[in-house]
């Protein structure tokens, strides 16, 4: 307001100019469409261009942001669908394998669903939905399509508690597939849970067990029937003097990924070697790395 020297507001030139401009402004009200459009266009492509461009840019950015949200939602939905299908494919394959085994092993082996409590201290324990009413007994072996999972610890009427091979108390008498060497398989704790391994102990020193050789339950001791795959030899673990060797084993079953199992019921045979034909058996560790969709 009081920034400049006093202007001459009522000078004749100023008044004439004001009247002329006022008339011109009134004239714009009655301007024909064509000159109107020319004036409008002239301002829009010159003085107003940066502002219109800003609005267009912001509008496009908003649209892109909305599209990104939409695309992200679609990606999330597809990921959910794909991951669900992946799990279904995996479960389907497991069930097919188990179905084949169940047909060969029935009626003495019962199909069961394995559930893990997941709490601290219960990592190597599991529940199955079959109990004494179904014919499940303490010490009954629990197997999957790939081999030995563990054994039953406690039995209730409709459920049972078992331990898998990652339990420190797990022991099983085992032998090479051809019966040339015998030993005791036990759990060897790693520095962390995922590093747990199986070790074959008690083999004769002069026996050299080649990596990749299948190890089955021997049936000695009467707890586990003969012929359930436990794993494969995976190198020498320890040599003590000249009288003892132990071997690392690659387990046949990864207990963490098992959801459906067979559990031995009453009258189960003491030799089940025929249930896991050698040529069809691979360790589950090999299979986990495979794409379930292939």
């Amino acid at each position: 307001m009081a920034y400049a020297p006093e202007p001459e507001t009522s000078g004749t030139r100023q008044v004439v100019m004001a009247v002329g401009i006022a008339l011109l402004s009134v004239g714009t009200l009655y301007m024909a469409d064509e000159p109107q459009q020319r004036v409008t266009q002239a301002f829009q492509v010159s003085v107003l261009r940066p502002f219109i461009w800003t609005q267009e840019t912001l509008a496009q950015a908003r649209i892109r942001a909305d599209q990104i949200d939409d695309l992200q939602s679609e990606v999330d939905s597809l990921t959910a669908v794909v991951s669900t299908q992946g799990a279904l494919v995996d479960e389907n394959r497991t069930l097919r394998d188990l179905l084949g085994l169940a047909e060969r092993a029935s009626p003495t082996y019962l199909r069961a669903t394995l559930i893990r409590a997941g709490g601290t201290g219960s990592e190597s324990l599991f529940f199955i939905d079959k109990g004494s009413a179904d014919g499940v007994q303490v010490y009954a072996p629990v197997v999957s399509a790939h081999g030995l999972v563990g054994r039953i610890l406690e039995v209730r009427a409709r459920s049972a508690v078992g331990m898998d091979w990652t339990n420190p108390d797990f022991r099983v008498s085992a032998m090479l597939e051809d019966g040339s060497a015998y030993g005791m398989v036990e759990n060897a704790r790693g520095e962390f849970r995922e590093a747990d391994r199986l070790v074959l102990n008690g083999t004769a020193y002069h026996e050299n067990l080649a990596s990749g050789t299948r190890v089955l339950t021997s049936g000695l001791g009467g707890v586990f029937p003969r012929g359930i795959p436990v794993g494969t030899i995976d190198g020498t673990a320890e040599v003590e003097g000249t009288w003892r060797k132990s071997y690392w084993m690659r387990p046949a079953v990864e207990p963490g990924s098992v959801t459906h199992v067979l559990v031995a019921g009453m009258g189960a045979p003491v030799d089940v070697s025929g249930l896991w034909p050698g040529e069809t058996m691979g360790t589950q560790t090999d299979e986990i790395g495979r794409d379930p969709g292939l």
């Binding site: 920034y3 202007p7 100023q14």
Partner: peptide
């Protein structure tokens, strides 16, 4: 701050 004609023109 300006004359009436200038103000009209600016308007």
């Amino acid at each position: 701050d300006v004359g009436v004609g200038t103000a009209a023109g600016l308007g």
